[in-house]
Design a protein around this nucleic acid. Structure first.
Lengths: 149, 149
DNA sequence: GTAAAATAGTTTCAATTGTTAACCATTAAC
DNA sequence: GTTAATGGTTAACAATTGAAACTATTTTAC
């Protein structure tokens, strides 16, 4: 077996590992978010993710559509709902009246704090089943993964 | 700073790293799947994931519903569509006639080979930007992560 | 300076996906 | 052998999404 075959084998291993690890983990996280979001605040997981993106600075319909890879009309409608629910406000930019800036309201921020805080706690509890070294290694590989995205 | 504070700090770091790494990566993967699935086969990403689960052995409506955390009727309907499209067959288990086993047809398997092969290639290309050590570490931490799920 | 093009967002409409409730068929329990 | 539990589907309805067409605003080109 030559070096390139061997390294390609390693790559394949990493890809397979990914498929066996992340989707189930992500599903568990989503399930946890759903629990808190639906039960306590009656919003969907997708709505939570929209709020999360807004909080992280994706504060326009286009930015959200790009970030979530779905159409602008779809975002526009979801935003509509969150506005009527009082979690977001739309503000037209006076410099360029085509732009509508999205911001979380106090309610929206409180909701995010609650859900995200809860989820973070759950994730920390889950990750704490790993040894200190494993956590270190995990953080490290996520760091290197982040670099190539 | 005592030991428990320090380890909790590490945990927090890991969780933050997760949120900065995984959702964007997942989004890119989904986008890639969507490209191939929609363009070449005209199925949605969600339909792809159902086929993926069936291929991995989640071969009943209940198993799929549990795996994807959605209701059985929802799965039943999606399966319906994929059956009429010729990607899945339903087979009643003669031992227990309540069970309906789901299997990919030849077409379904071909579709999966195409999409998954393509996606795998893309992922390998992406991961190959990492060093051999980083890939090793990544595989390793996914392995340890998998253990605690 | 105005007509044309580009940009940001919304509305409309149809398809898909999801939920709950009610249902059928089959098997297990007693 | 009736009753309960299991696996799945159907029905009715709400929510999400995308494509196409639309409005409003700004930029570009001449």
């Amino acid at each position: 077996m030559d070096a390139s075959t061997r390294s390609s084998e390693k790559l394949r291993q990493a890809v397979d590992g990914f498929w066996e690890t992340y989707p189930p983990l992500w599903r568990m996280i989503q399930a946890h978010i759903r629990l808190v979001a639906v039960e306590q605040f009656n919003i969907t997981v997708e709505q939570f993710h929209i709020l999360r993106h807004i909080r992280r600075g994706r504060d326009s319909v286009s930015a959200l559509a790009e970030a979530k890879n779905i159409s602008r009309p779809a975002i526009s409608q979801s935003v509509d709902l969150l506005v009527t629910r009082g979690f977001i406000v739309r503000t037209v930019n006076p410099q360029d009246r085509r732009h509508v800036k999205l911001d979380l309201t106090a309610d929206g921020n409180a909701l995010m704090d609650a859900i995200f805080g809860d989820t973070r706690q759950w994730m920390m509890k889950t990750f704490s089943l790993l040894s200190a070294d494993e956590i270190e290694a995990l953080t490290c590989s996520m760091e290197s993964l982040k670099k190539i995205l």
